[in-house]
Each structure stands twice: as structure tokens, then as C-alpha cells.
């Protein structure tokens, strides 16, 4: 049983690991043979070496970006969940604001960054603001959808028990919405670092995005790629954390067996 389980897990993990190893090998081979010009993408050895040499620089900038991305993601998620809950409870608010909340998604928010810089100055704050705003939308929409799509039989049961709207929200709608929330959090998390990086180009003098821009300008390509990989690794770590939380909340999030 345990052995089968282990083999099952091995069979699942092995193909992606082999794929990554193969990609790195192809990358190394094409860099060594000069197929890939060095000014475009240095070899894996050079990038790895850069991680070692510029550890202090990378760490410093990674800390800034992590603060912006994680902080923004947390603020945006909390606001998104709270807004969805309030709109669920207060029908007039939902009727007036929901359409605008949907429509505002069409705004390319990042273009407001220069204005934001004028108002709050350069640094962590404007980046965190942009990340939290871009996180807010998927979380709000996912939560709203989850709250609206609660099983009608469960809603009817609570109604027959004379439950108040707040009780219905806490006891049925919120738990029912958790799978939707986690799906939305994964979307938000995967874009948080990207948005932080791009915003740093305009609004910051530190962070991995700033480092990518500057090292690109000075043709320090190994450093640029090391910064890009650092951001990717942090995104993966954040996704991993969310998956872990989802697994830990298993009873609430695994509703495949509809009861």
C-alpha cells in the first residue's frame, strides 16, 4: 500500500523533473556551442555562478520585492474577501457597485503608477499599492462567485431554520466559497511578483525588477537572469504555500463529494 503510494507519487513527480533537467541540459549545450548568443542568455553555469557572487545584492533586492509582493497580495486579498462579504450581506451595495467592480477590471492600472509616484513618492509604497489593487480583483471576483453559488438546498435549510443573513454567510456561504477563494488566490499569487517587478521599473529604486532593468542596461546579463530566476522561485514558493494551506483546510476545500 505504502509502496504503491510512493510509486504513484514517484510516477507523478518524475516526468516534470526529467523535463526541467532536459531543458537545462539543452540550455547548457546551446550556450556552450554558441548556438545561443551569450549576450542573449548566458549559460546555466554563469547564472549559477552569479547567484554565488552577487548573493548579497540579490538578497537585498529580493527582500524589497518580497515585501512588496507579499504585503500587496495580503492587503489585496483581505480587501477582496471583505468587500465580497459586505456586498453579499448588503444587497443595495451589491446592486450599485458590483457592475462597476466588474467594469473597473478593464482599466490598465499600471499606467496610473506615475500618478501614484507623484502622490506617495518612489519606493515600496506605490509598488505595494499596485500589487494589492491587482490582487484585489481576482480575489474579490472569485469570492463573490463562490458566495453566490452556494448550494441552494443548504441555503434553503438555513432559511427554514430561521437563520439570519449573517449566520447564513458564516455557516454556509463562506465555507462553500473557500474552493473559489483558493483558486483566486493562486491566480493572484502568480501575478503578484510579476506586477511588483514591472511596477518597480517605474516607481522604485530597489527590488528585483529594478535590478533586472539596471543590470540589463549595463549588460550584466548573468545578474539579470539571476534576478529573474529569483523572482520565479519566490512565485513558486508563494504558490506552494497557498497549495499547502489549501491542503491543510482539506475538509473545507475538498467538496468534490457533494453531500
Amino acid at each position: 500500500m505504502t509502496r504503491e503510494l510512493w510509486m504513484g507519487r514517484g510516477a507523478r513527480i518524475l516526468p516534470p523533473v526529467v523535463l526541467v533537467a532536459a531543458l537545462v541540459a539543452i540550455w547548457g549545450w546551446s550556450a556552450a556551442t554558441g548556438l545561443l548568443p551569450r549576450w542573449l542568455l548566458p549559460g546555466p553555469g554563469a547564472v549559477l555562478h552569479e547567484f554565488d557572487v552577487s548573493r548579497a545584492v540579490l538578497l537585498k533586492h529580493a527582500q524589497v520585492t518580497a515585501t512588496e509582493a507579499l504585503g500587496g497580495c495580503a492587503i489585496g486579498s483581505v480587501l477582496g474577501v471583505a468587500a465580497a462579504m459586505v456586498m453579499t450581506l448588503v444587497a443595495p451595495l451589491r446592486q450599485t457597485l458590483y457592475a462597476y467592480a466588474l467594469a473597473s477590471r478593464a482599466l490598465p492600472l499600471i499606467v496610473f503608477t506615475p500618478v501614484l509616484v507623484i502622490v506617495v513618492g518612489r519606493g515600496i509604497v506605490p509598488v505595494m499599492v499596485i500589487v494589492s489593487v491587482t490582487t484585489y480583483f481576482p480575489v474579490f471576483l472569485g469570492m463573490m462567485r463562490g458566495l453566490e453559488r452556494s448550494n441552494p438546498d443548504r441555503m434553503e435549510l438555513l432559511y427554514s431554520l430561521s437563520a439570519s443573513p449573517t449566520q447564513i454567510l458564516w455557516k454556509v456561504q463562506l465555507p462553500s466559497a473557500l474552493p473559489y477563494l483558493f483558486a483566486a488566490l493562486k491566480v493572484a499569487a502568480s501575478t503578484a511578483f510579476v506586477n511588483a517587478l514591472v511596477t518597480e521599473w517605474i516607481a522604485a529604486n530597489a527590488g528585483l525588477g529594478y535590478l533586472v532593468m539596471v543590470s540589463g542596461q549595463y549588460f550584466r546579463l548573468p545578474l539579470m537572469w539571476a534576478a529573474i530566476f529569483s523572482a520565479a522561485l519566490m512565485t513558486l514558493a508563494l504558490l506552494g504555500l497557498i497549495l499547502l494551506a489549501e491542503r491543510l483546510a482539506g475538509r473545507w476545500t475538498q467538496q468534490a463529494t457533494e453531500v
Binding site: 448550494n151 438546498d153 443548504r154 434553503e156 435549510l157 427554514s160 431554520l161 430561521s162 455557516k171 454556509v172 465555507p175 475538509r251 473545507w252 467538496q255 463529494t257 457533494e258 453531500v259
Partner: peptide, 17 residues
């Protein structure tokens, strides 16, 4: 409001969590 009746639905609705 006074919970004079209790409803048993078709699908034995449970909160799975």
C-alpha cells in the same frame, strides 16, 4: 421564526465540512 416546524429535504442536505 419560532421553529415550530422542522424541514427534512429530499437530499438529506448536510454541510460536508
Amino acid at each position: 421564526a419560532n421553529r415550530v416546524y422542522a424541514l427534512v429535504q429530499q437530499g438529506s442536505t448536510m454541510l460536508p465540512w
